[in-house]
Computed example of a mutant assay.
Amino acid sequence: MRKTFLLVLLLIMSSAYAQEQKKVNFDEQFKKENQGKTKVEIHEVKELLHIMIAITEVGLENDDMVQQSGTYYQDVLKQFKTFKNEKIIGKFDSLIKANAVNYVLITGNGMSYDFKGNKLVPDKNYIFPAQSVSSHTTVKTNIIKTWKSDIENFAEKSGFRAFYKKHIPYYKTLISQYNTTANLDEQWKWLEKNFDTRVNNYTVLTSPLINSLNYTTSYHDNGFLQILMVLPPLDEPQGRTEKENTVYNTRVMFTEVDHNYTGAPLKKYTELINESLKEREKWVNVKQEGIEYYPNPIRVFDEYMTFAVFYLYCADKYADDSPTVAYAYRDVNEIMKQRGFIKMKEFNDELLSLRKKYPTKKIEDLYPDLLQWCKMQ
Rank of each mutant, 00 (worst) to 15 (best):
R2A: 08
R2F: 13
F5T: 04
L6F: 15
L7Y: 08
V8I: 07
L10G: 12
L10E: 12
L11V: 13
L11Q: 13
S15C: 10
Q19I: 13
N25V: 11
F26M: 05
Q29F: 15
K31L: 09
E41Q: 04
E44H: 02
K46D: 08
E47H: 10
H50R: 05
I51Y: 06
T56P: 03
E61M: 11
N62L: 10
D64K: 07
M65Q: 11
Q67Y: 09
Q67E: 07
G70D: 11
D75C: 08
V76F: 07
K78M: 08
K81H: 11
K87N: 12
L95I: 07
I96W: 08
K97W: 14
A100N: 00
I106A: 04
Y113W: 08
K116P: 00
V121Y: 01
K124L: 10
I127D: 15
A130V: 07
S132R: 08
S135R: 14
V139R: 05
T141N: 02
I144K: 09
I144N: 04
S149R: 05
K157S: 09
H167S: 06
I168N: 03
T173Y: 04
T181M: 05
Q187R: 00
N200Q: 07
N201W: 02
Y202S: 05
Y202C: 10
L205Q: 01
Y215K: 02
M229E: 03
P233H: 13
L234R: 00
E236A: 10
E244C: 04
T250Q: 14
M253L: 14
F254M: 11
F254W: 02
D258H: 07
Y261Q: 01
T262C: 08
A264S: 08
A264N: 01
Y269T: 04
T270Y: 06
E275R: 09
K278F: 07
K282S: 12
V286G: 03
Y293S: 08
Y294S: 02
Y294L: 07
C314V: 14
D316C: 01
K317M: 11
S322Y: 13
T324Y: 01
Y329W: 02
D331A: 09
D331R: 04
I342L: 14
K343N: 15
N348C: 12
L352P: 03
R355F: 07
K357A: 15
Y358P: 02
Y358L: 06
K362C: 02
Q372D: 04
K375E: 03
M376T: 11
